[in-house]
Design a protein around this nucleic acid. Structure first.
Length: 111
RNA sequence: UCAGUCGGCCGGACGGCCGCUCCCGCAUCGGCCGAAAGGCUGCGGGGGAGGAAAGUCCGGGCUCCAUCGACAUACGGUGCCGGAUAACGUCCGGCGGGGGCGACCCCAGGGACAGUGCCACAGAGAACGAACCGCCUUCUCCUCGGAGAAGGUAAGGGUGAAAAGGUGCGGUAAGAGCGCACCGCGUCUCCGGCGACGGAGACGGCAUGGUAAACCCCACCGGGAGCAAAACCGAAUAGGGACGGCAUCGCGAGAUGUUCGCCUUCGGCGAUAACAUCGCAGGACCAUGUCGGGUCCGCUGUCCGGGUAGGUUGCUCGAGGCCGCAUGCAAAUGCGGUCCCAGAGGAAUGGCCGUCACGUAUCGCGCGCAAGCGCGGUGCCCUACAGAACCCGGCUUACAGGCUGGCUGAUAUC
């Protein structure tokens, strides 16, 4: 699993199908090549100071690490947009939120 | 013990599981890819946020641009003196003024006899030294209470942020630096100090109101932009240049006219002709066919230069940290020893737990008149302010809680 780093990639994913949860929004985009799953994080300035934004991103990153890769489709790009509630929401609950969000993406946009 | 004042330091600890990033090592080179440089990956070891990393307010280093040098002008900044420093608006030590019993704190602290302006309201008057209420003298009138006129005054009242030196005594019709003493102010001289300034004496008889955080004057300083600086490599697309290859450089399916030819008539015919005018037009694309419409005008190959995305460098050894000695009141400087201490780039330095400590809320028990204190349980925050982004020296702002030192005042005891 790779990190998404280029601005153009982020813009491409932003137009794809999305699913929102209480602490984040998941955006997705299928790629045409057969590379690995790539995932990126976006936390905008309105979510708080630099320290709080860092904490949001780190908790989201940890969520993805804990998640079994089966939930995500191969060779796709995902972007998690953080919200302020990700600072204080219980970690186990957020993990369930993320699984639910991926399931919703699967149902809404089947192959 | 309480109250205060000035500093210094820390800013959760330990452990478990799972990760991130950088560096080093892995012997005839750990494994894979690669011609190599190197990349990916595995194992082991090590480093990995702050006192403000913040605000971006000053000062530098560094980079690029501009620039022969000097001076002047404009603009901006600074503004008691001496020192420290690479430099500063910073720091240290002093001076002056103000506040506090004191330790100590505060000060945008050059110039108002270079010039211009302003001084609201109130008040008679806010600057070419003024006179409202008053005070005093003389004269006139008169109802003997006063009124009016002329003059002398600036002590008192009143206004104001500020009223033309202050206090006291003398003096006077009443007064007034009119005279005297002290204080203040100014000028001169002497003494001390590198200096800001301080001290003493003599003289002046008070002249020169405030405002420069109004313009201004004086002295000193300052070229501009910033690591998204800058250097190198450099895809795709569009466009530029050079060279080459291919294709094209028309059509006759129409009408009219003329010439020409033919046939059975003053007429007609000519895919057996030529010219002119009108007309039509090729190729590619818009998914395809018909109709209608639109866009472009050669297509293509190789190379070159600029250059975007992206990548690499800049990128962390530095006016560096710690310790000791010396000099200095100090800021600091010098010498010696020792250490290597983050380098990310949609941005690593973490996530989830456990135990403990601290804080806070609440409950129970005990002590106590009470405030409160101690023990135990539970919950919460699981820490405050806050996240390096080229690097240093400062300033400013934010900050739960804790540790510690000097000094001052008060109280108590010896």
């Amino acid at each position: 699993m790779d990190r998404l780093r280029q601005r153009a990639d982020f813009l491409a994913v932003a137009n794809g199908p999305r699913a929102s949860g209480p602490a984040f929004v998941v955006q997705s985009c299928r790629r045409t090549d057969d590379g690995p799953i790539r995932i990126g994080f976006t936390v905008t300035k309105k979510n708080g100071t630099a320290t709080e934004r860092n904490r949001i991103r780190r908790r989201l990153r940890e969520l993805v690490k804990r998640l079994d890769a089966v939930s995500m489709r191969p060779h796709s790009d995902y972007v998690l947009v953080g919200r302020r509630t990700a600072l204080s929401r219980d970690f186990a609950v957020m993990l369930d939120d993320l699984r639910a969000a991926f399931r919703r993406l699967d149902r809404q946009h089947p192959e």
